[in-house]
Design a binder for these strands. Structure first.
Lengths: 144, 144
DNA sequence: CTTATTGTAACTATACTGGTTACAGTTATG
DNA sequence: CATAACTGTAACCAGTATAGTTACAATAAG
């Protein structure tokens, strides 16, 4: 399958918005940078708008902009705004409840899943959109 | 899609092996506890065998057992043995290299991906198969 | 009124996962 | 030795998620 890359695209999108500042960006412009279809972009923007990270406006001269300054946008917020899957999934079928291990393993795995998710959230909490901008700066100057 | 639950199944399988100790377990027996098809189990066992976590033997009275005692089997090892995907995927298409953001974002996302993967590995490093067994014990007694 | 843009539905192509059948190779055991 | 019992693996199917695409209604600027 095409693995879920919405979080990565969301970060890309938000970075563009951060660079452009006050200007409204069109989904078409963003799509050009991400190298995909405008509708794909708008779908992601919809999720980001639900999370109040961006604001979109329809009509001519419409488009999307950040709600908050880049320093105040944390990558955890982005992660939570986007419907990413869990790090690992629990089996679709319930384990055999007649087996002691089958009976007990599910809650253990579920707790483990939550613990890992907290770990990921914690790590993402270390990064803001502003820090992403800095890292891109660094890459550019390092390459130059 | 059916999300990848191989890691969860692997932990379940290894827990069963840990409980049974020296005995060889048949894929059929394991499948009964996990509530799936023996071939699905054998596919996962194959990956665990590649990582030297388990040993399988063909033929009558064949089956699979743990190579190491449960205390020495860490969940990171299991995670690395199983082909799980990354926490989030990078876009399939390369970003537009004519755009400064598009040019710089990819390595930033790649590094972020690695940082998160390290976070997950670190958290999984806190658990051994023995600790999983203990947690199941706890669940059982708590429920009783 | 015309033009530009978002939001969203609908459809397609692709691809991964788990489930299943089938079968060759291997080993214990009578 | 013959048989029965397993593993390993290939092949195929069904279900489903993702991204890409087209189309169009709703909305707003000029």
């Amino acid at each position: 399958m095409a693995a879920n890359s919405q979080f990565a695209m969301a970060v890309h999108i938000l970075t563009l918005l951060a660079v452009k500042g006050e200007t409204n960006l069109k989904s078409d412009t963003i799509a050009h940078s991400v190298n995909t279809n405008p509708v794909v972009i708008r779908r992601i923007l919809g999720q980001l708008a639900n999370a109040r990270l961006v604001e979109s406006h329809t009509g001519a001269a419409g488009g999307t902009r950040l709600v908050l300054p880049p320093e105040k946008v944390c990558l955890v917020d982005v992660y939570k705004a986007i419907s990413c899957g869990e790090v690992f999934a629990l089996p679709a079928k319930q384990a055999n409840q007649d087996c002691p291990v089958g009976r007990g393993i599910e809650s253990v795995l579920c707790n483990l899943q939550k613990a890992i998710d907290r770990s990921v959230a914690e790590k993402l909490g270390e990064f803001s959109l502003a820090s992403v901008l800095e890292m891109i700066e660094f890459e550019s100057t390092a390459a130059a």
